[in-house]
Design a binder for these strands. Structure first.
Lengths: 149, 149
DNA sequence: GTCGTATAGTTTAATGTTAAGTTATATTAT
DNA sequence: ATAATATAACTTAACATTAAACTATACGAC
């Protein structure tokens, strides 16, 4: 194990803190999903439909970053619970448009509110200006091909 | 969908950016693991042993935040590949001490170096002082029970 | 010492996930 | 029009993960 340079230590250190923060915050936020018995993917699908309106499976998949096979299963399970419904697109029959049912809309409205409250609670550890700053730094970091060496 | 307050919007916004950054960075860092055919958990175990020395499965589990059943499987798979070896603790026979083999040590040394380089590359999107700042904010955010309301 | 409790690790069943291959439909080139 | 290609969704097989039940070992009270 060779000694790490100062730059390397700093990068590792920051990386670790970033990962721990993300994990610690999400794990607490996701507890809200236990009650309505939603998986994270199921919540992601419902949330996407709630905020963007009806979508086809491909678009949902690219939104929540899951494989198409997985989306099929997630939608199956949501459909079994009557939270969404598949509607064949008649102008291009390869597509389904996935719609929230009334029950699905009610559920996600409530759950999203809880998740939102949980996020606000988590973020309250930071002052207003700190939140803004954190957002800026994360955005800069997340940009692909930032300052690749 | 009721209109979100300014505080709520800010919190959600920051949360989203944090999650995106974490995901975007890890997904690129983890690509390094494809070549040596290591899962993230396997890497986590090897890395823990590499930096902390031999550990029992319980300690490994609490380090990489996985269930005990999962640790058993991960260690099984690493043992099959001769990267680690279980040694029964004779003073308390309930425990195994998990040791890196020579092959395991060689592999994780190399892989960790690559991961490290990848992290440094990712973090290079931020200036030195920005990295430090990000680390501080993440630390503050990650602390349990920060300023719960 | 023996019995009850606690702990480390294993096993099993259920579920989520992906990658690869399949089917149905649409589009494009000829 | 027909053939080749592309695309949306589905299926399947492999594997990771967890929770819960289980086994083996240790410890503590009596």
């Amino acid at each position: 194990m060779k000694p790490a340079s100062k730059e390397t230590s700093r990068a590792l250190n920051t990386y670790t803190k970033l990962m721990r923060a993300a994990e610690s915050v999400t794990s607490r936020v996701h507890r809200v999903l236990a009650m309505p018995q939603l998986t994270i993917s199921q919540f992601g699908v419902l949330e996407a439909l709630y905020h963007k309106g009806p979508l086809c499976q491909r678009d949902i998949g690219s939104k929540i970053l899951k494989s198409s096979g997985n989306i099929t299963l997630v939608i199956d399970n949501l459909e079994k619970r009557n939270l969404v419904i598949r509607v064949r697109d008649e102008s291009d029959r390869r597509y389904f448009t996935i719609n929230l049912t009334e029950a699905g809309t009610d559920l996600i409205a409530k759950v999203f509110e809880d998740v939102e409250a949980s996020i606000v609670r988590e973020m309250a550890s930071l002052e207003e200006n700190e939140q803004v700053l954190l957002g800026q730094l994360c955005k800069k970091l997340g940009m692909k091909g930032g300052v690749a060496s």
